[in-house]
Design a protein around this nucleic acid. Structure first.
Length: 287
DNA sequence: ACCTGACCTCGTCT
DNA sequence: AAGACGAGGTCAG
């Protein structure tokens, strides 16, 4: 196992810019060609083509080097559009995030946009997270559940979360009282994990899928946001025939089943490549 | 079951 | 310059 880890990190082939800039993570900053990222209580510092400061195990996990990407990519490329999307960003990777941070981040993301999400989460860290100094920079770790849970809604609101503040606090309380247990959710199957997550105020289908895909090992999760629906309408009219902008609960479940049938049980990977491709078409700069 | 509108906040466009 | 619009949704009615 240790040997395997060494081999994989030695051949570390991840496009950091593409992966970080693909809507998965929000607390990364590039300073002097070095990336600094907050993942829960860890700070990841990454520089292209250089030795990494982190333990190999941390990197191995975060970049999902345990996935057999060659095999996954081979399977995904059976779909022509996904093939093209992978060719455009061959070293884009799914990231395995700290579950609590991911959970709060996507509750904050709803009906918002990237820059607002980044700003809100940064403020949340600055206000409630522990400060660490790395390379002379002040960085703030993601707050622990108990800190947000006991904060007042007014205090949380000062981070610019608006009406989401209430959900962020109660979602943190749910973690504290054990109603949400990430390790347990990892063990559940997709549908049961989703049922548990959507009980939480502020978590609907899309947010639940993001949390499951990015932090709970549910690779069949396929977040259906406006962009994805547009993509399905644009490239997959025959396969999925999406008509409306918003989809109903029933349609959603049915659509997800067909998506997994079409893209396979690693559909979440396909989603990430498709999403990245389409966003780049629109030449949006995120960072 | 499906449909509609309101919702914090911030940047952009008129 | 002030007001409308919409942004990686969710929820109530």
């Amino acid at each position: 196992m240790k040997q395997l880890v060494s081999n994989l990190t030695k051949n570390f082939q991840v496009d950091l810019d593409a992966s970080i800039n693909s809507g998965q993570v929000f607390l990364w900053k590039k300073i002097n060609s070095k990336w600094y990222g907050i993942d829960g209580e860890n700070v990841l510092v990454l520089e292209k083509n250089s030795k990494f400061d982190q333990s190999e195990k941390t990197l191995f996990n975060f970049f999902r080097l345990d996935d057999d990407f060659k095999k996954i990519s081979y399977e995904l490329k059976k779909d022509k559009i996904v093939r093209k999307a992978i060719e455009l960003n061959p070293n884009l990777r799914l990231l395995r995030q700290n579950p609590f941070q991911c959970y709060i981040s996507f509750i904050v993301s709803s009906n918002s946009n990237i820059s607002n999400i980044q700003m809100s989460l940064h403020k949340l860290c600055k206000k409630f997270g522990k400060k660490v100094i790395i390379d002379g920079f002040d960085l703030f770790l993601f707050p622990k559940p108990n800190v947000i849970a006991k904060a007042s809604i007014t205090e949380i609101q000062k981070c610019g979360l608006g009406y989401r503040s209430k959900s962020v606090k109660s979602a943190s309380l749910s973690v504290m009282n054990g109603e949400i247990d990430f390790e347990h959710l990892k063990k559940l199957d997709y549908y049961n994990a989703k049922r548990e997550l959507t009980k939480i105020s502020g978590i609907g289908n899309k947010v639940a899928d993001c949390i499951m895909l990015f932090s709970l090992e549910k690779l069949e999760a396929f977040p259906l946001d406006r962009w994805m629906l547009r993509i399905l309408q644009k490239y997959y009219t025959k396969e999925f025939k999406i008509s409306t902008k918003t989809i109903t609960e029933k349609t959603h479940e049915n659509l997800h089943d067909r998506i997994v049938q079409h893209f396979g049980c690693q559909a979440g990977y396909a989603q990430q490549f498709l999403f990245k491709m389409e966003r780049e078409l629109h030449k949006k700069k995120w960072l």
